[in-house]
Design a protein around this nucleic acid. Structure first.
Length: 258
DNA sequence: ATGACTTGCGCGGCAAGA
């Protein structure tokens, strides 16, 4: 089973790249973040014509997440116990596969900058609530993949200039500690299960020539429960999508389960 | 270096992202 995650930075701006990705990589499930539109404005017909069921949790202008699946899915919208959140940042689905079912979340964690603001407190509160929900999912002993744009740089090897990012909401100790809490629960960072190489980035800013200079960040992650980790075959970052014209500033990340 | 980005909204230029 192939599961991918991509922050598209506006699904309406990226529809041609999205359809090409579905054709080329053929994920069984694709998690999207930053669709930046209400549910009714999602290019549903084009994606359905490509062979996918579509579940969206969108809002006007900002944020918004979606899950596309070849096979029918059961869907929950919003992070449980965080339902009052006006920002659309979480959608979860149960997808059937040949080995049973896999529970998959598409997560768009808050950026949190500047750290002195309410935006950072919101980020930390979201992460605390996510950890509580992630813990409850583990108790069901299912294969779980928590996919998305975490807006977390886990370690110094995941950013081109760690010193320059030391005070950023993506890299502060309080942020990294909460990401580590998810791992301590029993989830594995799928990419780190297959490689300890530095410089495996998923994001390059549009500004200041970040892409040609390879000034990247690893902030999009696939966290897998033990039952999913046992089935992990491979992980890849599709960075060629960042090089294409009219690219998102994020590249997709994906894994294959046996 | 008088520069150096991309969205949504909505029609001018700001807010937000990371």
């Amino acid at each position: 089973m192939r599961i991918a995650s991509w922050n598209v930075n506006s699904v309406r701006q990226r529809i041609e790249q999205l359809l090409a990705y579905l054709r080329a990589v053929s994920p069984d499930v694709l998690c999207l973040q930053e669709i930046k539109c209400e549910d009714a404005a999602f290019p549903r017909a084009e994606v359905e014509d490509a062979g996918y069921n579509v579940a969206t949790h969108g809002q006007k202008t900002f944020n918004g997440v979606a899950i596309l699946s070849k096979r029918p899915i059961e869907v929950v919208r919003g992070l449980p116990k965080f339902e009052h959140d006006p920002q659309a940042r979480y959608i979860e689905a149960v997808a059937p596969d040949d080995a049973g079912v896999v529970r998959i979340a598409s997560i768009y964690l808050p950026n949190g900058n500047p750290p002195s603001s309410e935006k950072y407190a919101y980020k930390l509160a979201f992460m605390d609530c996510l950890a509580a929900h992630a813990a409850s999912l583990l108790r069901q002993e299912e294969a779980v993949v928590l996919a998305g744009d975490y807006n977390v740089i886990p370690a110094a090897g995941d950013v081109y200039d760690p010193q320059a990012w030391a005070g950023d909401a993506l890299f502060l100790p309080e942020t990294r500690a909460r990401f580590q809490t998810l791992l301590n629960l029993g989830y594995a960072d799928a990419l780190r299960a297959v490689s300890d190489a530095p410089g495996l980035y998923t994001f390059w800013d549009y500004q200041a020539g970040a892409w040609p200079k390879n000034h990247g960040l690893r902030i999009d992650h696939l966290l897998v429960s033990p039952q999913a980790a046992d089935r992990l075959k491979s992980v890849a970052i599709d960075k060629e999508l960042r090089a294409a014209g009219r690219a998102s500033d994020h590249a997709p990340i994906r894994l294959d389960l046996a």
